[in-house]
Design a binder for these strands. Structure first.
Length: 282
DNA sequence: CGATTCCCCTGATAGC
DNA sequence: TGCTATCAGGGGAATC
């Protein structure tokens, strides 16, 4: 389940491997991951575009496409991997049905950029740069937790007016972009905060600790190229290393690394929150 | 505004 | 062995 460190890992791979390449063909037979009628649009319009730049906004991967120096021809390709989406580079894996290839962008160096997605929850949107940038998917996103503008002051101003449970607020992409179920649990454990604490009841000290915990856990995971619980892979199909050093996520019944108390898992809507009932109290 | 529930999808896993 | 029920989860929509 790609969150910020996993998506950033994908993007840094892509920057090395496909920036500068020209797209020379497109294939897909999975309409549900695109907006209506996008497959035929992509087939007829995307050929000849060069991948000029690749970026990330929250969990969204952005491909800036250009044709020569024509500014008005600038296009944007947005890919959101959701739960099981992967971006793979190469061509040897394309024909194997076990790779669940849902879309293929053929490149000018005899290789391809393929989108794999077992569950078909992923999203691919192609269009004019301005139009894509104004979609709620991007426009409504909160700040990126690793961005310079994401100061501790900014963080406090975003969290403290909220009445919702802190775990829910951390998962809300319109508050902060990029945190998902794994890193919200990990950060709350580090900061010793119960996931159900109402956000407006967090003390100034707790908020500072949570801010530092979020940044720390994301940077640590980034260094290890993300977490692979089940599904995440980088563009070469390799798993990330963070899960081996995780603190609470998916450790129900195992001892807390600080106090030895058994880690609990509680349902929060359809998601689950993992925490130490001893260290993390409301 | 906030809380809750359901839906999308399908491989993995647990229970019988 | 083989069947069936349940689960995982990002995000959006619907309802109260």
């Amino acid at each position: 389940m790609p969150e910020l460190p996993e998506v950033e890992t994908i993007v840094s791979d892509l920057c090395k491997k496909v920036v500068g390449r020209e797209i020379i063909g497109f294939w897909s037979q999975t309409p549900r991951i695109f907006p209506k009628n996008q497959i035929s649009k992509l087939k007829s319009q995307i050929n000849g575009y060069q991948i000029a730049k690749i970026d990330r906004r929250g969990k969204n991967i952005l491909f800036y496409l250009s044709q020569g120096s024509k500014i008005n021809s600038q296009k944007l390709l947005l890919i959101h991997p959701k739960l099981t989406g992967r971006l793979l580079i190469g061509n040897h894996f394309l024909k194997n049905p076990k790779n669940y290839i849902r879309a293929i962008f053929y490149l000018d160096n005899k290789t391809a950029l393929a989108f794999s997605d077992v569950r078909k929850f992923g999203k691919i949107i192609f269009g004019d740069k301005k139009k894509i940038e104004s979609l709620p998917d991007l426009k409504n996103l909160g700040p990126d937790p690793l961005d310079k503008i994401f100061t501790v002051k900014k963080f406090k101003s975003l969290i403290s007016p909220q009445k919702r449970k802190i775990k829910l607020v951390l998962l809300d992409q319109e508050v902060i972009a990029g945190i998902g179920n794994i890193y919200s649990d990990e950060a709350l454990w580090i900061a010793k905060i119960h996931p159900f604490t109402p956000s407006n009841q967090l003390t100034n000290h707790q908020l500072t600790k949570l801010y530092n915990a979020i940044r720390k856990v994301l940077k640590t995971s980034l260094r290890l190229r993300g977490s692979s619980m089940r599904d995440f892979r980088d563009t070469s199909g390799r798993a990330g290393g963070y899960i081996k050093i995780r603190r609470v996520y998916d450790r129900e019944g195992l001892p807390c690394f600080r106090c030895g108390t058994k880690i609990k898992r509680i349902k929060m809507n359809v998601r689950s929150a993992h925490f130490c009932p001893q260290c993390q109290r409301i």
